[in-house]
Design a protein around this nucleic acid. Sequence first.
DNA 1: TTGTAGGCGTTATCAC
DNA 2: GTGATAACGCCTACAA
Lengths: 343, 343
Amino acid sequence: MARRRYVSIKEVAARAGVSFQTASKVLNGGDVRVSADTEERILAAATELGYRPNTIARSLVQRATATIGLVASDATDVAIAQASVAAEQAARANGHSVLVGHLAAGGADGADIVRTLIERRVDGIIAAAPEVEEDTEVADLLRRYVPAVSLQAVPGGGVPLVGSNHRDTGRLAATHLLGLGHTSIGTVTGTFRRRMTRSRLHGYEDALRAAGLEPSEDLVAEGDWTPQGGATATRLLLEHSPGLTAIFVHSDAMAIGVLSALWQAGRRVPADVAVVSCDDIPFAEFLTPPLTTVRVPLAETGRQAVELLLRSIAGEPVPERTPLLPVELIVRDSCGGRRNPSD
Amino acid sequence: MARRRYVSIKEVAARAGVSFQTASKVLNGGDVRVSADTEERILAAATELGYRPNTIARSLVQRATATIGLVASDATDVAIAQASVAAEQAARANGHSVLVGHLAAGGADGADIVRTLIERRVDGIIAAAPEVEEDTEVADLLRRYVPAVSLQAVPGGGVPLVGSNHRDTGRLAATHLLGLGHTSIGTVTGTFRRRMTRSRLHGYEDALRAAGLEPSEDLVAEGDWTPQGGATATRLLLEHSPGLTAIFVHSDAMAIGVLSALWQAGRRVPADVAVVSCDDIPFAEFLTPPLTTVRVPLAETGRQAVELLLRSIAGEPVPERTPLLPVELIVRDSCGGRRNPSD
DNA sequence: TTGTAGGCGTTATCAC
DNA sequence: GTGATAACGCCTACAA
């Protein structure tokens, strides 16, 4: 396995019988002013030698790496993964590479990751890790050193935000359940620390109030985004409000646990309890029963983050708030049909 | 938002009143021979100025980037994601950064991704994308240009492989079902193109034969790793072998679809049909019913890939085949208890 | 149309 | 102990 030595532009130039600067010129395309003959010789030499430019050297002189950093969540969270994958693909489509850092379990190493990214001179950073929402050190780094875009609120602001309309998400879900005739609607939320959770909760409350119902504390249980936590929260909910007939869950991942807990408690879904969730991750449709859920444009969020970041890197002014992406209700079996009011 | 200009080592040196070479020496630690006084001055200057070394420049002279490339699957596949996340964390724990590239849907751009990684002079590459299993161009690049480790077979070999024992996986699952008294055991496989699928199938056949049963074509249906595909394959299986009492599924993701299809067909799990799967992704335990599955050490695979790659980068000889990681059966409800032989 | 000079920020080698 | 000199591979003027 003799590893191939990298060939430099000088060797290409030598083989083509020109100076390496000339070779550089034609190899980088653009507005070259060389004879068609030499151009051809250079190109030929390059392919024969298998020349691959050394991006490192180029970055040094250009003071730009065509690389963006991505701070991602540890959680092998499908929803976040969708956004990151889409972001990476979008970046690559625009000639940029992506350097990732996944937070460790606690999320305490966010600043370390960002510092590493900065040392590597990424042109910009996308923060796609909820754990960072309260990390002032990360926020500070992002504000001061490098163009950045975040998928979640950043303490102190100053970093453009992209995302979807979480309040609408809660509103849409609850309104649908209300429309089906439910009046006792519980909710298994995400962690309260997250702004997204509070927005979704507000949306849910908006809907209840609009229907003349007063939100009750007994109908709210905090989850932690895991199926496990969803199950636990559901048991709590069932204990405090045995009469509930519907649950709005703040993520499909938790909904798995919710369905599981309901099943174990002997409640049929949707016959006894209707369930509506958020995200619409790929397997939502294949749960038992198929999940009604508010689709959140995760991939689109990732793409938009890249687009915004590249604009920022290019020096264009970017607004700190862009319009929230719209969400959409996907109706499946888990919420059943219209409820008989006499139930 | 005045962005902070990066401060160079020369500025640090100037502020400390020494040459930049001296500053470089102490900043990089190691066996420095400078007076404690100057050392202190330099360190102080560095922190005051907020000096962050420029990794790009360092890489140029050292001809090493402390970066590894990761070719990942497009599929927001939870199993693969676990391995990649673990790999990234392990790499970072060893002072390396990770540059990722996610294949597009078809997986046709594998070579492009690898070439980009090579141009960026990554020190090594980890291939974690099944789509690449048949890509000779990628295999060639990996063999010739850069140390590499793969999580799946590579055409032509020459690239060290890490992974778990897939044959044992199939054997373990089928043996368990046989032990429960099942004699008509269907299997929803992964795509036949993948070696892993064939290994798991062989393991399954091993177990059947060991129990004196002859594998039947009617009991095998090919899936495509998605819940969707799992559901379709299950319907096929039910059609060809209505009498089956158990199904071995090649991935938890597909198992979601299998459960869904069985449910729709009116077959109770595990009462009518027992289900055993592979992977043990985080939510396997929360499906309805909780999934019995063969746990595959995904994260460990990722870590081992990094370890091997770093050794290879360091110039140590690495074996092309390392011992396969062991798998373990996790028994939950989806396979029920011992079957009454008179059923 | 082509080549020359200078520099990007760092590390390495070797005098002093 | 410290600093000068060279080099890493490339690009961007500018001169020829």
